[in-house]
Design a protein around this nucleic acid. Structure first.
Lengths: 339, 339
DNA sequence: CTGAAAGCGCTAACAA
DNA sequence: TTGTTAGCGCTTTCAG
């Protein structure tokens, strides 16, 4: 009825379980007579033997799993990253266990706890905040992990992030070339590295280009969400600051800006241009199609997985961090300012 | 260094491992002296003991995991369903292992194989095709599973699906009420239950309402994708069939229609109305905002998980299937036909 | 090159 | 109520 075990195979092949084990494992196959090995393998196949990684894991204390800690799978930024991760994990014989934290530190702690009890060999973390005691603690405990997309401050862990500064630079220059001089920034939450890096880069490029660097042109949100983006833009508008273009902290925030445009009868791009960040799916179908900075989602995931696998193989390896290049995708939400 | 084991706890509490086990497991706690239990629990806490489900699983042959077989996590239909699933799984002490099949039967077989070797206790399958030998075979082998969203034909497995027929009926009636009489249908692939059920319901309602039931008004796609939807609509247009509205098989297909509208300078909704199916995220931001049929994603997932858990608990339980009600979401892509 | 024996961490009879 | 014993399926010394 139930699956054949190694013992069943061994018996059927007329060898000891240990021999069967050696024959079946490519790594130890050399230790066994080639003929015997062949025979065992054939029998295993005939019986439809499937090794039980759980049992193996118990012995070797390697579960063959890694945890993927995501804020919310429903955010279109993450599925492509997850795909990238799995495309690397899978051929390496690993699988990923996905958990959602909903940006709730309590939930995050519980979920990571859960992953650890499931004996994951490492963590890919997409929920890093600047101050992140939990990550610091895990790092101290020797949990191997790599950050994707964002990274905490002051913890020496490997990370794969987009080159946020370069991306924002691209965005601001694009708007400047169109002729905008008063550009606003609806910045992401300042407790995330992406939020602060992008805001900092925004100020730097604006100054570089000699544009209006009035600090009132920057509105900071508390969440990477549509609602939060809308609130951020409303604040700017209500303060009466003048601007003709917006660099949004990410696409979701840009979508929030769209909501406010609608509310307040602002035409985009005629009255105000806006540019997003991430290039999530279906942006080309928006009204207007959103100009944005594209990040290599898939590659970010793949690199992160590779890094993690490396660290698992050699936990002493120093924290290497990678920044991936971005590109500007011009669509319909940016145009020269009204004369 | 490494995590404390049950034995460590037992020793520290001055009891045998078996007693510690009983004390720590709520189900068997009754078998042990209340004081002893309390003591063991306290010690466990102090030591930061985390039970090892792998070891437990080896003994009990219950892994506490179920497989989620998804075509592609990148399709926005699925993440909310997955969230629904996990919200039920988690409190029950189960976790979900997600795999993507990319609609490739070979990959699907391999992935399910992989899940089985990881000892999943059941499968939630979102990849059902009408003819699905693999599912038939798994069912015969006694693998417990439940279908979400679509179901295979002729296999007696539990399923949770939207009420496709009712949804299409809603869609057609909405268009008819607006005054449309020649309505086209860009149908999903005929190898999926959703594709055929929706197409069948379309014909039924059209006839019921006495509208033009020319079969040439139905174009069938080979994939649930934007590209495939675009191709489907192009075929209709190239054939010169006259219509003023389209019921798209799903939202992705509707997006494909948008692409063709753009290509051929068709104004939506002035020239042609279109209505989608699923209500995936951000549809309200499209140009024009897409009218669609909303399905209860989250609830579909949650129900599926509940059903699966039930079946795991009692594998003899008969296959109960559930159809969930849908609702019409009117946005800007539908309007009365041009006079 | 192969077999014997032990054990990963936990639970479930069985006995006391 | 608790301890003893055995074993889930596998790998890995250690002998032979």
């Amino acid at each position: 009825m139930s699956s054949p075990t190694l013992r069943d195979v061994a018996e059927a092949a007329g060898v000891h379980a240990a021999t069967a084990s050696r024959a079946l494992n490519p790594a130890t196959r050399g230790l066994v007579n080639a003929d015997t090995a062949r025979r065992v393998i054939k029998v295993a196949e005939q019986l439809g033997y499937r090794p039980n990684p759980i049992a193996r894991g118990l012995k070797t204390s390697k579960s063959g799993t890694v945890g993927l800690v995501i804020p919310d799978l429903t955010n279109p930024l993450f599925p492509p990253i997850v795909r990238g991760i799995e495309n690397v994990l899978e051929p390496a014989g690993y699988s990923g266990l996905i958990v959602n934290t909903d940006n709730d530190p309590g939930r995050e702690r519980a979920q990571i706890e859960h992953l650890r009890s499931r004996q994951v060999e490492g963590l890919i973390v997409a929920t890093a905040r600047m101050e992140h005691p939990l990550l610091t603690q895990l790092h101290r405990e020797g949990v191997v992990m790599v950050m994707v997309n964002r990274r905490p401050e002051g913890v020496d862990v490997p990370s794969i992030t987009p080159d946020d500064a370069a991306g924002v630079d691209l965005a601001v220059r694009h708007l400047a070339e169109l002729g905008h001089t008063r550009i606003a920034h609806v910045a992401g939450p300042p407790n995330t590295s992406t939020g602060v890096t992008r805001a900092r880069a925004f100020r730097a490029t604006v100054r570089d280009l000699g544009l209006d660097d009035n600090p009132a042109l920057i509105s900071t949100t508390s969440q990477w969400s549509e609602a939060s983006g809308a609130a951020g833009l409303r604040r700017l508008l209500d303060d009466g600051v003048e601007f003709t273009a917006i660099v949004a902290g990410n696409d979701l925030i840009a979508l929030g800006c769209y909501d406010v445009f609608y509310e307040r009868d602002i035409r985009c791009p005629q009255d105000v241009s806006v540019i997003g960040f991430n290039d999530m799916p279906f942006l080309d179908k928006l009204r207007p199609p959103l100009t944005t900075i594209a990040i290599p989602h898939h590659q970010i995931g793949a690199e992160a997985a590779r890094l993690l696998l490396d660290s698992i193989a050699d936990p002493t390896r120093p924290a290497r961090s990678v920044m991936l290049p971005l590109s500007l995708v011009v669509r319909g939400s940016t145009a020269p300012p009204a004369a």
